Amino acid sequence: MVGRFAGTLSPRRAAVLVALLVALTGCSTRGEPSHATKGCPSTADPAGLACRITSAARTSHDPDASANQLANAGRLAENGYQLLGDHPEWDTAVLAAVDPSLREQVRRAVDAYRQLLSLSGPPGANLPAWRVVDPLPVDVLRGLYDRAQRRFGVDWTVLAAVNLVETRMGRVVGLSSAGAQGPMQFMPATWAAYGLGGDVWDPRDAIMGAANYLASNGGADPARLDRALHRYNNDVRYVRAVRDYAAMLSADPNVLVQLHAWPVEYRTVAGDIPLPTGYESAHPIPVGQWLTVHPLPQGEG
């Protein structure tokens, strides 16, 4: 979303932003992985929610957890944060019930969700012209963030948070040649100035370009980071969400495993529709048309 809010916001740029935020703030009610929820109440209430969030965090820190279990724990944590984000009346009870070491993480995750949700606008009538792919492995992405930090001084946690908010760490690939491009969402003119001659669609080049852009606007200095993020996207809610996710990673770098597992969902007039790896369309798809072929399992949406 680099440069998208510089000066007057055009309708086309606003539409791109809203589409991305809608996809990244869908409230999930998918089935829950048994490994992460073992021993937790099945009811959707504060006690059960606190148990699931705590269990997901424990799985994420379990050195014997399989890759599938880690991914499921990440998705479970996301579901929990979103459910709590939609029920502010549960905040006090859930925060009192979660493991004390997780309280600040939960506050941050829920605040980020609420900030982005406030930017997302009304539900869409069409699914987007996107391709959804698997992101690079988490250890590869961490290496790219670290490399960019060493070169430009922008903290790796900020780069990871921007990557998450922009495209779910590279999961969302927009097929339009207009507007923002690549996993870090650069406008073409901005990429030409800060992309270091790389390929805007290559995660390695895009992350390095984002670090270059942020550093050029003061992002290597913690006292000027907000200004740099405002240059990336001139909305205080965006800045606050990025700062929330970066703070989560700073407090516990292992949270990257959870964030990396978060899938793409699209908020529509018919409910929240998951866009799995392999989803691809060159044109917007009416929601009804999609659901005729891909009905949601009972209880979803």
Rank of each mutant, 00 (worst) to 15 (best):
Thr59Pro: 01
Val132Leu: 09
Tyr213Ser: 03
Arg151Gly: 03
Trp201Asp: 12
Trp191Gly: 03
Met1Trp: 07
Asp134Gly: 09
Asp202Cys: 09
Ala71Arg: 01
Leu95Arg: 11
Val94Glu: 04
Arg52Cys: 04
Ala67Met: 04
Tyr266Lys: 02
Ala125Glu: 15
Met208Pro: 00
Arg147Met: 07
Val239Thr: 14
Val132Asn: 01
Pro88Cys: 08
Leu17Gln: 02
Pro137Arg: 07
Gln181Tyr: 06
Ser216Pro: 02
Arg227Pro: 00
Leu296Phe: 05
Asp155Tyr: 05
Val172Ile: 15
Ala125Met: 08
Ala251Thr: 09
Pro33Arg: 04
Asp139Gln: 13
Gln105Ser: 13
Ala192Met: 11
Gln298Ala: 14
Asn217Ile: 01
Ala6Arg: 13
Leu84Gln: 10
Asp99Met: 06
Val94Lys: 05
Pro203Tyr: 08
Val98Gly: 00
Trp191Thr: 03
Val110Glu: 01
Tyr213Glu: 03
Leu84Trp: 05
Leu127Asn: 03
Ala73Glu: 00
Val158Gly: 02
Gly3Tyr: 03
Leu83Ser: 07
Arg75Asn: 08
Trp130Phe: 12
His35Ile: 01
Arg231Lys: 13
Ala241Cys: 10
Tyr213His: 11
Val154Gln: 05
Leu117Tyr: 11
Val106Ala: 08
Ala223Phe: 09
Gln82Ala: 12
Thr268Arg: 03
His87Asn: 15
Pro188Met: 05
Ile285Trp: 06
Val132Ser: 01
His35Met: 01
Arg204Val: 08
Gly121Lys: 10
Leu9Ala: 15
Trp90Ser: 02
Tyr213Trp: 13
Pro41His: 10
Asn68Ala: 15
Leu159Lys: 04
His230Asn: 12
Arg13Trp: 07
Gly48Glu: 06
Val236Glu: 14
Arg147His: 10
Cys40Glu: 11
Gly121Arg: 11
Ala161Phe: 06
Leu175Ser: 07
Ala93Val: 04
Ala206Lys: 07
Trp90Ala: 05
Met1Cys: 11
Gly124Thr: 11
Arg107Lys: 15
Leu20Tyr: 12
Thr292Lys: 14
Asp139Lys: 07
Ala180Gln: 03
Phe5Pro: 00
Arg131Cys: 01
Met184Cys: 13
Arg58Ile: 00
Ala223Pro: 02
Ala251Tyr: 04
Ser118Cys: 04
Leu229His: 03
Tyr238Trp: 15
Ser176Gln: 10
Ser281Phe: 07
Thr59Trp: 00
Val18Thr: 14
Pro183Glu: 03
Arg114Met: 09
Ala50Gly: 11
Thr268Cys: 10
Ala228Thr: 05
Ala251Asn: 12
Pro295Cys: 12
Val158Phe: 06
Asp272Ile: 10
Cys51Leu: 10
Pro183Met: 09
Val255Ser: 02
Leu83Ala: 14
Asp91Arg: 14
Ser216Lys: 13
His294Ser: 06
Leu95Gln: 12
Ala251Met: 15
Pro137Gln: 08
Ala50Cys: 08
Ala178Arg: 14
Pro274Ala: 04
Val2Met: 10
Met169Thr: 08
Val173Pro: 00
Asp62Gly: 06
